[in-house]
């Protein structure tokens, strides 16, 4: 009788290997159509699906999102209750509509990859939504403070315009600020805050991930500007 169960294991292993083969051989990113099919499969309201599809396609075309991470995220979101899937995607859609980079592919952290990380960690949809909202708050606040300080030009609010180097600086600065406040247990008045953020931007700039002006922006930052970013991130009415 035990032979029967050895066969179970054998067939399972064969299934595993066979099922992996097509993806292992895949050397190109998924096509946008495949991503849209995964979105359709979530069974969200048709109006939302249409709006999100349009935002995503613009994101792919302008360098603000990638098909690889988008596909994986959409496939993974089935784990969450439908309401929370909608909330997650609405935050991402809104960020794209405001011209923010939501996905840097398989290099670096961004909204989509962070959502994937927390799904891998088994966190709840509620937690993932709250983190995405906080990240959106940091993105909006960072751009607002940098524009007001004259360090970057006001954004062109057109989702068809390709992502600029300033968009990448905003992303990385907002991410560093968010990491410090959300995960390092830091506060806006923390004396380590400025050094933490400057170090991150300088390193990314040296690696070529961030444009050269990131270094200049890093040296122009002040503790007051960082404190203002945090304040604005949690007080949307003042942005």
């Amino acid at each position: 009788m035990k032979i029967c169960h050895l066969s179970v294991l054998f067939v399972a292993c064969a299934g595993l290997v066979f099922a992996q083969t097509p993806l292992l051989l895949r050397s190109t990113p998924p096509a946008p159509e495949e991503v849209l099919q995964a979105l359709e499969a979530l069974g969200l309201p048709p109006e939302f699906t249409a709006t999100f599809s349009a935002a995503l396609l613009s994101g792919f075309a302008t360098g603000r999102a990638t098909t690889t991470v988008s596909l994986l995220l959409l496939q993974d979101l089935v784990k969450l209750p439908r309401d929370q899937v909608l909330e997650c995607l609405e935050v991402i859609r809104y960020a794209l509509s405001q011209g923010f980079i939501v996905d840097t592919g398989l290099a670096g952290s961004s909204m989509m990859n962070e959502a994937r990380k927390f799904l891998a960690l088994g966190r709840s949809g509620e937690e993932i939504v709250s983190v995405l909202r906080a990240r959106l708050g940091f993105l909006l606040a960072t751009r607002s403070v940098l524009v007001r300080s004259g360090l970057i030009s006001p954004p062109v609010m057109d989702p068809q315009v390709p992502a600029t180097s300033a968009d990448r600086v905003v992303l990385e600065l907002a991410w560093a600020v968010g990491d410090f406040i959300l995960w390092e247990g830091g506060s806006p008045g923390d004396p380590r805050f400025l050094g933490y953020v400057q170090d991150r931007l300088n390193r990314l700039s040296a690696l070529g991930v961030c444009p050269m002006e990131a270094g200049k922006i890093a040296s122009a930052l002040t503790p007051a500007m960082l404190a203002e970013i945090v304040q604005l991130a949690f007080q949307p009415e003042r942005r």
Partner: peptide, 10 residues
Amino acid sequence: LGLPVGTVKT
């Protein structure tokens, strides 16, 4: 509570 530290503080 499964919340980010920043959220708890706020």
